[in-house]
């Protein structure tokens, strides 16, 4: 349905613009990752996750964990857009006295887990999914991982555990933008064959274009799979997506856009349909 896509696409665009302003203002890092996951977050929060400010602590709410906690600016942006706190508060990101810390903080309404050290989210998600399964609770648990994060062995402990216990309400999404902190994934620690790895751990694997909302949506809508397996979406993405001079550039893992760079980035996003 084009209507739905229009809304989530517009939301993704706003996530990108908020993230750019936040990271520029704070002179912070990780804009590349925020742009990489903006479409995934937009579809999750627009179409999939059963969460709302009114049901912040409801037992049956869906759980979303940003395991790659360095994408916090984008997460805060989508939460503010969904009304968990005022959009104006985004200006305080990563600044003295703000609760919007540089990496995701559970002191922010709507953030389920503080993250920042990689390799934590999938195990916590597995615990949440195990509780749901054993206690017959309806919620789904979604964990967004980075590709570089998969170097951490703890993920593979969690993958083994979730496959063994058939945690079919657990969804992992890999933001596979092929660039990690200090090199390309292929150069640093190649993950390929990545889909085979997850299948070998007894996960239901779907490969998608992580910027195509219809693909993200239809993959999420097939969850839980009827095979009693946890699901993983391997989302092929572009680091820096949407700002031409940032795309595929490792440097934007670290750099903050200058005033002029911000202006040109926002102009590019505003021009998008």
């Amino acid at each position: 349905m084009p209507g739905e896509s229009d809304h989530s696409v517009a939301l993704a665009n706003r996530i990108r613009m908020h993230s750019l302003r936040m990271i520029h203002t704070a002179q912070a890092s990780h804009i590349g990752t925020c742009l990489s996951i903006a479409d995934l977050l937009a579809v999750l929060y627009h179409d999939f996750l059963r969460v709302s400010p009114a049901t912040l602590n409801a037992e049956d709410r869906d759980r979303f964990i940003l395991s790659k906690g360095h994408g916090a600016a984008a997460l805060y942006a989508v939460l503010a857009e969904r009304g968990f706190f005022p959009i104006a508060e985004l200006d305080s990101y990563n600044r003295d006295g703000s609760r919007l810390t540089g990496h995701a903080s559970h002191h922010v309404p709507g953030v389920e887990l503080s993250t920042g050290s990689l390799g934590h989210g999938l195990s916590v998600g597995a615990g949440l999914a195990l509780a749901a399964k054993r206690l017959n609770l309806p919620y789904r648990t979604v964990v967004l991982l980075s590709d570089g994060e998969l170097d951490e062995g703890s993920n593979w402990e969690a993958a083994l555990f979730a496959g063994h216990h058939q945690l079919d309400r657990l969804v992992a999404i890999v933001d596979y933008n092929k660039i990690q902190s200090y090199g390309s994934v292929r150069e640093v620690l190649d993950l390929e064959p990545l889909t085979d790895k997850w299948r070998a751990f007894r996960w239901y694997v779907t490969e998608i274009d992580g910027h195509q909302h219809d693909q993200i949506r239809s993959a999420l809508n097939r969850i839980p799979s009827d095979s009693s397996q946890p699901s993983v979406l391997i989302a092929h993405t572009v680091k820096g997506k949407g700002v031409s001079y940032m795309e595929h550039q490792l440097a934007w893992h670290y750099k903050s856009p200058s005033q002029e760079q911000l202006r040109s980035a926002l102009a590019e996003l505003e021009a998008q349909p």
Binding site: E59, L113, S123, A126, G127, L130, E157, A158, F161
Partner: peptide, 21 residues
């Protein structure tokens, strides 16, 4: 639950269970 010989995951799973009340 016997979480197996995987203490990092064991501690994380415990955190998730506790987060679920």
């Amino acid at each position: 639950i016997n979480a197996g010989v995987a203490e990092q995951n064991m501690a994380g799973v415990a955190a998730g269970l506790a987060q679920a009340g």
